[in-house]
């Protein structure tokens, strides 16, 4: 464990807590893509298949349970809660996310560390995580403005990826056998996807204006 990875896990956890805070505090999920949340829940469920078979550390197990529980909580809240679900931008959140699932699965069948059930689903979850933010970014683009908590949510998600890239660089130089090239390449793609959002987030923060994404 290094400070970059720990910081990455904490900002990842904060991003989910910010999301839960926004939904419970405002009793609204406007500006949040349900599809992105469903994709994230799928990412955690398919990545942590080894939750009960491989014990790595108490921290690792607890964080896996927290990520699975919180991502499912967001999806259930957005789908079930009678007040929250009314504020869901159903007609804006129209990204065909099934294509993302299919593309990630096909890629996982072709590119994986070992052609076993667990490894294929692990690679699938890595590829899907890189693409999962797309429906959310498209929704923000369409809704034009980004309210503070949603902007912070995407910001913390981006920070989590950036810390993980620092973690991989650190591990590359400190561990001789370290070779997580699938996660590294996919993580880089994911961070690039955030880059344009960060650009507009920074511009709006600098101008102290409400964040406007170009239509």
């Amino acid at each position: 464990m290094n400070i970059f990875r720990f910081a990455g896990d904490m900002t990842h956890l904060i991003s989910i807590l910010v999301l839960l805070l926004k939904i419970y505090a405002t009793k609204s999920c406007s500006g949040i893509s349900l599809k992105t949340q469903e994709l994230y829940a799928l990412v955690f469920l398919t990545r942590y298949l080894d939750l009960f078979t491989d014990f790595i550390s108490v921290y690792n197990t607890i964080m896996k349970l927290v990520f699975i529980a919180s991502s499912l909580a967001v999806v259930c809240c957005m789908r079930m809660h009678r007040v929250v679900r009314r504020s869901y931008d159903k007609d804006l959140d129209t990204f065909r996310h099934y294509f993302l699932i299919l593309a990630s699965f096909v890629l996982a069948l072709l590119v994986n560390e070992k052609f076993t059930f667990q490894e294929i689903f692990w690679a699938f979850s890595i590829y899907l995580e890189a693409l999962a933010i797309l429906p959310q970014l498209v929704l923000l683009q369409r809704s034009g403005n980004v309210d503070n908590l949603t902007g912070q949510y995407v910001f913390f998600l981006g920070a989590y990826r950036a810390f993980y890239i620092l973690n991989w660089i650190y591990r590359y130089f400190t561990e001789q056998h370290f070779s997580r090239w699938i996660a590294c390449v996919s993580g880089l793609v994911q961070t690039v996807l955030y880059a344009d959002f960060f650009y507009y987030y920074f511009i709006s923060w600098k101008n102290n204006a409400k964040m406007q994404l170009p239509a």
Binding site: R5, D9, H12, D50, D54, I56, S57, N60, M63, K64, F67, E113, K114, E119, W122, Y164, N167, H177, F178, S179, R180, A183
Partner: peptide, 10 residues
Amino acid sequence: DDSKVNKDEL
């Protein structure tokens, strides 16, 4: 084995 070693991240 190698792939297991690399699964210590979340």
